[in-house]
Design a protein around this nucleic acid. Structure first.
Lengths: 197, 197
DNA sequence: GGAATTAGATACATTCCTGTATCTAATTCC
DNA sequence: GGAATTAGATACAGGAATGTATCTAATTCC
């Protein structure tokens, strides 16, 4: 155990993790439609026999890798800082969206044959089966405390922030800055709940 | 010319159109990553030699097909119906997004290797190089006429409607109803320009 | 009607990917 | 240290896709 440097082969958990990391990177680079056992194996520096011993095909490797990622972090609204909490929630969303798992989920959801593979169970695993997402969690927290009329928190309003961030990511591929997130909160979300300028 | 039914082969423009239609359908079904000359040829009922005589590969067939689609229709704001015009603009967006060309553009923009192929020139051709998009055109029209303060028409505000529709399409794959579009206008866009309930 | 053009059909070699089989080498466990 | 387990390496056959070459048939044009 004391001479780990002399080992030439990965084994067990270490090998699985390397394969998981490799498939998440590979799908981001080539997309679901071009995902192959060959590609994953090359990236993980492991032969295909090693992959086929555990998984029937590349999609299964990918879904297994996603299954074993940490669930998405939940926004933690504070005492009384609606605006700040919304911005932090959106930042959390951006960070996740740009993570290997986030990018992989996006790749699956936007692939014509990929979306059907994203089972309900996996979706709940990734998002830890919470009743809300990013800004919805914050908005509900403050509506419950009377910060704004709860009836204004409609599905449309709950979606505004994340929709704008999602479109931004698609349009430019670049992460929005904190100024961008603040603009989304100030110009779109707060007016929608009656707290505009 | 009077006995078109007796012809067994398509030729010239008719053949090109069939190939264009085929590639737009094929990319929607299989995605950019799985687009092949074989697939296009099968769908167009034409051999690959016919394709290779004109295009070096499947991506070029696709981009050429897009180049020759009619540009996106522009919203035509009326005299004084901001809400109605916004809903109509979003409906126009949905119709385009669900068209063969719209779906193909989406497939390209969401493919890791596809987005880089969408040249500026093609983008302008598809969108006819107009300064605005769907709701932005309407909003600018009414801001110019003093319907609401022009300084409220920021890039974020201009994007709200389309962002919500885009996210809806991604999340559910189903087209929003007119009620959905009205909710987006009433709950998100109008409040953002100071015309909330 | 015949020449020119073009679409369609077929064949071929190559590459990549798939899935499997087999073997060797490394690692772990007793 | 030896047995068991597992990772890595290699080989193989078959299928799909690529790109090219060649030929035939259909269509258009003069």
């Amino acid at each position: 155990m004391s001479d780990q440097g002399a080992r030439t082969r990965r084994r067990g958990e270490e090998l699985i993790r390397a394969i998981h990391d490799a498939v998440l990177e590979e799908v981001v680079e080539v997309g679901v439609g071009r995902l192959t056992m060959d590609g994953i194996g090359r990236r993980a520096a492991t032969p295909r026999t090693t992959l086929y011993r555990r998984w029937p095909g590349p999609i299964e490797v990918l879904l297994d890798a996603l299954y074993h990622q940490h669930p998405v972090e939940e926004p933690a609204p504070g005492a009384d800082d609606l605006r700040g909490d919304l911005i932090r929630a959106l930042r959390l969303m951006v960070e996740w969206a740009l993570s290997p798992a986030g990018r992989a989920v996006a790749a699956i959801l936007t692939d014509p044959k990929g979306a059907a593979l994203m089972s309900e169970a996996l979706f709940e695993r990734v998002f830890a089966n919470r009743g809300g997402t990013f800004t919805r969690t914050v908005l509900r927290h403050y509506a419950d405390r009377g910060r704004f009329p709860a009836e204004l928190l409609t599905p449309v309003v709950a979606d505004i922030g994340e929709a704008l961030v999602t479109k931004r990511l698609i349009d430019t591929g670049a992460p929005p800055t904190d100024e961008d997130l603040a603009a989304i909160v100030d110009q779109a979300i707060l007016p929608a709940i009656g707290l505009g300028p």
